[in-house]
Design a protein around this nucleic acid. Structure first.
Length: 183
DNA sequence: GTAAGGATTGGC
DNA sequence: CCAATCCTTACT
């Protein structure tokens, strides 16, 4: 099976094209001790800086969100709830704030778990997936089907953003998330 | 300088 | 259902 490292052309597409296409791709990571970890992406979410109130970059370019404005293919990582490092892939052209949140891979269900599984932290902020030798994404030719649903945990953004079906999940993924959170 | 809150998780 | 935990941002 031919494995191809995804290049710039893939990442400079619109975030709503990249997010679903990332389903089934292999997220790869080389640790300091040269151990290579690979896991298939099964859940993503799209964040678009163009008005989307759920997107960090919409509030403006800050020290925290500057990676959103990089050219597609870079990595945007931030600490959530003081505990979890969430991994995002920047898409689109330079100064077009868009990014795909990697919410889950096969071996790690949940965005916080992904960061932990791949040993990611602030030192990977702004890394370029197309040139980096510590984190990159491969396409091994396998295409997975997916469904679209509203995004998780962004109630504060209000309508119409809450209703946008910008979350993409591999169909057979069975999340054991406790039914639906009431309130 | 200080205070408030979050793209979550795991445990009770 | 609720606490943990710390960095970023907004405001006085």
């Amino acid at each position: 099976m031919q494995e191809t490292k995804l290049g710039r052309d893939f990442f400079i597409q619109d975030v709503l094209d990249v997010a679903p296409k990332l389903i089934g791709k292999l997220l790869c990571r080389k640790l300091p001790d040269n151990t290579v970890i690979k896991s298939r992406i099964i859940e993503t979410e799209a964040y678009n800086g163009n008005g989307d109130l759920a997107c960090h970059a919409t509030k403006g370019k800050t020290e925290r969100t500057k990676a959103f404005f990089y050219e597609g293919g870079h990595v945007y990582i931030y600490l959530c709830y003081g505990i979890h490092w969430l991994l995002n892939i920047v898409t689109g052209n330079k100064d077009e704030p868009q990014a795909v949140l990697i919410r889950a891979v096969e071996e790690a269900i949940g965005p916080g778990r992904v960061g932990k599984y791949f040993h990611l932290d602030k030192s990977h902020y702004g890394e370029d997936l197309t040139t980096s030798n510590v984190i990159w994404i491969e396409d091994d030719g396998i295409n997975l089907t997916y469904i679209s649903t509203p995004r998780i945990g962004i109630d504060y953004a209000g309508e119409p953003w809450i209703s946008k079906k910008w979350r993409f999940v591999h169909e057979t993924t069975k999340k054991t998330r406790k039914s639906k959170r009431i309130q």
